[in-house]
Amino acid sequence: MNDRLQALSDAGVSIWLDDLSRERIESGNLSELIAGSNVVGVTTNPTIFAKALSDGERYNEQVRELVAAGADVETAVFELTTRDVQEACDLMLPVFDRTGGVDGRVSIEVEPALAHDTEATIRRAKELHDKVARPNLLVKIPATREGVAAIEASIAAGISINVTLIFALQRHREVIDAYLSGVERAKQAGLDISTIHSVASFFVSRVDTEIDKRLEAIGSDEALALRGKAAVANARLAFELYQQEFSAERGRALLTAGANTQRPLWASTGVKDPDYPDTMYVDDLIAKPTVNTMPEATLRAVADHGKVLVDDTVSGTYDESRDVLERVAAVGISYDEVVQVLEDEGVEKFDKSWAELETTVASELEKGK
């Protein structure tokens, strides 16, 4: 085990890999990362699947089977992606068992075209849950306004959910409320609420990318001094919100009844700006219990030179974090506008990647005829 990755795990941060492909599974790479790099979970998204299918030949046999069965593109995408997730779930099952279901999780996303359709999202989440049929699956639902209601309904049905594309603190509050409401409904329905898990994926680097762009356009000394500070401040305040909600009476009552907390997950932790330390969104967001889902380049960087010097770099920073966001507002940048832009762009980017995935699959189906 790598000392830095072990120290991060010991500090209460679950390391999840933000990547999945059949190549990783069948070559033994994912097993190696589980065994030697403290990887205890996997997340996927449409961009990841599009890249995996365009790069890999390991899908050819299944593609031929799908062609023979007369599968259309939508069915083929569903079958190809769920098989990868099933196999990753099976590899992660020992971690799932060892951690009592907390980790060993693999996520698969409801297609982004449904992000603004509550009922369709609910149906698709159930279809993915039933198809993968593994206890360690998380279904990803984006935290759009329409998605929040689907999150509550899915949790109430006993489906474990990875809530994705959270940028705003207010939306995070709504997501926590949806989780608690869903667990309350599941409890009333007689479900075993101890088996329901959820993470709230709070996106990090994209916040700096958008706010830094605006700070640089303003160009004043006050504005430029704030570059690279907003994303970590925003995430730290999300963790404060998590602490508040699960220590309040409603949260405590559910935890006493056997529920799990909805852990904050730091997503988009690959650093976009080469001027910043490439491990900053890991080093500056160490807190228990959180998840950090990293692209492999970030995982390798943390293993090589991450500054995991203390067990907590979040608690005690809340006033400072609020001050950062207040100073951002003071130079003329609207927080509400930024987070809405980021949510809209996030759905749009994943929708574009889904279209690329469908195009890739259509091409593969044609070649397999």
Rank of each mutant, 00 (worst) to 15 (best):
A235L: 08
V271L: 04
W266D: 04
Y59D: 00
Y335C: 07
N292T: 11
L180M: 15
A71M: 09
L265T: 10
S198F: 04
E87D: 14
G70N: 07
A186G: 09
H197N: 14
K307D: 11
P274Q: 12
G251R: 00
D192T: 07
V328Q: 01
S107R: 02
T293I: 04
V232K: 02
R206C: 06
I218N: 09
F246E: 02
A267I: 11
A11T: 04
V328M: 05
A153Y: 07
E326R: 12
K131I: 07
D273R: 02
V232F: 07
R134P: 04
T269C: 04
T82Y: 06
T47Y: 10
R300Y: 12
E146M: 08
Y179D: 01
N136H: 09
F203T: 03
V73F: 03
G190Y: 08
D311R: 13
G258H: 10
A235D: 05
E249T: 13
A231R: 08
S363T: 14
I176N: 04
A233K: 00
V361E: 00
K126Y: 10
D18E: 08
S321C: 04
S363G: 13
A156Y: 01
L30V: 01
V361H: 00
V324P: 03
T359H: 14
V163C: 06
A115Q: 03
A267M: 13
L309P: 03
G306T: 01
D90I: 13
E65V: 12
V204N: 06
S54A: 14
N162F: 04
E23L: 01
L30W: 01
A186E: 05
A362Q: 12
G258W: 09
G158K: 02
S14W: 10
F167G: 02
E111A: 13
V271R: 03
E146C: 09
Y242C: 06
Y59Q: 02
G36K: 14
D319A: 15
S160W: 00
D273C: 06
S268Y: 04
E366A: 15
E23Y: 06
N2A: 02
A259T: 09
V271K: 01
E245G: 07
D208A: 04
Y318R: 10
N2F: 08
T47V: 13
E358F: 02
D351S: 15
S205H: 05
R22N: 09
G228E: 02
E74V: 12
I176R: 07
R252T: 15
G346K: 00
V102N: 14
V204T: 08
I211R: 02
A257D: 15
V183M: 06
V13R: 03
N234R: 05
L365D: 01
G12S: 12
L357D: 00
V106E: 02
Q262H: 08
D55G: 06
V308A: 05
L365G: 01
S353R: 10
R327C: 00
